[in-house]
């Protein structure tokens, strides 16, 4: 707990809506921390409260109960806010400002002096490869370019902590990889990241730990490596099949003839010993046998739909 940069302690936030201003809880009793120098992923279905959790961390909203701390300072306080960089899911920019002007303003608002802000703007534009567009009005930028500009504004003041809401949204495959690289470099330099994403393969690739949020509450949190993955089925590659019918009965799909003349057989987990037995009896010539595990999407889908709770 001591090296935690960000702490949500029993934090709750609700809004009032409708004619009778009924209270609608958005998140309740959020309890987790983000350790220094690590990347934590925040995942959950739409409307689960991911963005609200990030906004609480960015100090944009105050929790109605509990607290959100950045280095033990309440997140909404000015001192805490100078430590964070925040990226929203959609980029909300001023349409009539030039990219350079917008970023320079953001740098100055973060306390960087005018001259240094101008230099830092060019430096950060170089990083996100938008330097050639520096004089373009924000309204003329594409969604992907705006997303990169958004990342630039989050990094311009060299924050210690990054809070990112869907950072890969609207990016092409090249830029998804580049952003991953930028985030890993940020982590390598001691930075702390909390980010939400729907692209779970990105979460798996980048994160050290994971927080699963559902209906405004945390349903699971822990290390990515601690997620126990179920084996869905086995895949065997064989070079010879002496009893095609027997194998067909064991397999849970069609036996597939591969271009190199070998066969691919997939079969249920409980038939693994049977396959090994057949190989030992020389009914098949086994080249390889590998378990196919659940991917992160499936694990979280089960968890979200309550079919299965991630352990």
């Amino acid at each position: 707990m001591n090296n935690s940069e960000l702490i949500w302690r029993k934090s709750a936030f609700s809004i009032r809506h409708g004619f009778f201003m009924k209270i609608k809880p958005i998140v309740s009793c959020i309890n987790f921390s983000v350790p220094k120098g690590r990347i934590t992923g925040l995942v959950g279905p739409n409307g689960a409260g991911k963005t609200t959790t990030l906004k609480l961390g960015a100090g944009l909203i105050k929790p109605q109960s509990g607290e959100v701390l950045i280095r033990n300072i309440p997140a909404h306080q000015k001192k805490a806010r100078s430590l964070t960089g925040f990226l929203t899911e959609n980029q909300y920019a001023y349409p009539h400002l030039r990219l350079k002007e917008w970023l320079q303003m953001m740098a100055e608002l973060s306390g960087i002096k005018s001259k240094k802000a101008a230099y830092r703007t060019l430096e950060i534009l170089e990083l996100v490869e938008l330097r050639s567009l520096k004089n373009q009005l924000m309204q003329t930028l594409s969604k992907g370019q705006l997303q990169r500009a958004g990342l630039a504004q989050a990094l311009i003041h060299s924050p210690a902590i990054l809070l990112l809401d869907e950072p890969m949204s609207g990016l092409d495959p090249y830029w998804r990889l580049r952003v991953q690289q930028i985030l890993l470099d940020f982590k390598k330099n001691g930075g702390t990241i909390l980010f939400s994403s729907h692209i779970l393969s990105d979460v798996e690739r980048l994160c050290d730990s994971l927080v699963l949020i559902k209906n405004g509450q945390i349903s699971w949190k822990g290390e990515i490596s601690a997620l126990s993955r179920k084996i869905k089925f086995y895949e065997a590659v064989v070079s010879k099949i002496n009893d095609q019918k027997l194998i067909q009965n064991i397999s849970n799909s069609e036996i597939e003839l591969r271009h190199d003349g070998t066969w691919m057989i997939s079969f249920p987990v409980d038939k693994k010993n049977k396959i090994i037995e057949l190989a030992s009896k020389n009914i098949i010539s086994l080249i390889s046998l590998k378990p196919i595990q659940e991917n992160i999407e499936e694990m979280l889908l089960y968890s979200i739909t309550d079919v299965k709770k991630a352990s």
């Binding site: 906004k55 960015a58 100090g59 944009l60 000015k78 001192k79 806010r81 100078s82 964070t84 925040f86 929203t88 959609n90 909300y92 920019a93 001023y94 953001m106 608002l109 973060s110 306390g111 504004q153 003041h157």
Partner: peptide
């Protein structure tokens, strides 16, 4: 409406 205010108020701006 455009939520541009988010990117200003998360900074140390009162």
């Amino acid at each position: 409406q455009r939520r541009t205010v988010y990117l200003i108020l998360y900074r140390p701006v009162t």
